[in-house]
C-alpha cells in the first residue's frame, strides 16, 4: 500500500497556486523549523472574496499537498466561507492522510486563519461581522 493517496501525490507532484502574491493583503505563516513544517499563505482579498491565493511550504509531501489543496478550496470563495475551512475538510478533499500526518492539514487551516487575521489587522475589517451577513 502506498504511503499517500493518489490525490495527495497529485497535489504534491503538481502543487497548485505555488508562489508569492506581491500585493497580498493577508499573509500568514505558521509552523516552525523544529518540527519540520512551515507554511506561508498569501491572500488577495477584494470585495470580501479571495480573488487570489498562493503558498510557500517547507515540509513533507503531505504538508505540500495540504497547502495546495487548501488554496484550491478557498480560491474564489467569500471570506465568510473561507473562515469556516477546517483541517478535516482539507484532509477529506485529499482522500485522507495517514494519522501521524493529520497535523499537516491542521497547519494548512492555521495558515489560512493566520492570513485572515493579518487581513483583518491591515484593513480594520471585522471579519466576524461578515459571517453574520
Amino acid at each position: 500500500m502506498a504511503l499517500y493517496s493518489d490525490k495527495v501525490m497529485d497535489h504534491f507532484r503538481n502543487p497548485r497556486n505555488v508562489g508569492v502574491i506581491e500585493d497580498a493583503n493577508g499573509i500568514g505563516e505558521v509552523g516552525n523549523v523544529m518540527c519540520g513544517d512551515i507554511m506561508k499563505m498569501y491572500l488577495k482579498i477584494e470585495d470580501d472574496i479571495v480573488k487570489d491565493v498562493k503558498f510557500e511550504t517547507f515540509g513533507c509531501g503531505s504538508a505540500i499537498a495540504s497547502s495546495s489543496m487548501a488554496t484550491e478550496l478557498i480560491k474564489g470563495k467569500p471570506v465568510s466561507e473561507v473562515m469556516k475551512l477546517t483541517n478535516k475538510a482539507v484532509a477529506e478533499a485529499l482522500d485522507g492522510l495517514p494519522d501521524y500526518k493529520m497535523h499537516c492539514s491542521v497547519l494548512a487551516e492555521e495558515a489560512i486563519q493566520s492570513a485572515l487575521e493579518d487581513y483583518k489587522k491591515r484593513t480594520g475589517k471585522n471579519i466576524e461581522e461578515a459571517i453574520e451577513v
Binding site: 504534491f12 507532484r13 519540520g36 517547507f58 509531501g61 504538508a63 505540500i64
Partner: peptide, 27 residues
C-alpha cells in the same frame, strides 16, 4: 525537508532515505 526530497527522487527512480522527522513518524 527530507521526505519531499525522497518522494521526488522516487519519482525519478532513485530509492534513498532521510533522517527527517517526517520520515520517522515522530517530531
Amino acid at each position: 525537508e527530507g521526505e519531499s526530497l525522497l518522494l521526488l527522487l522516487d519519482d525519478k527512480g532513485i530509492q534513498a532515505s532521510s533522517g527527517s522527522a517526517c520520515t520517522s513518524g515522530s517530531l
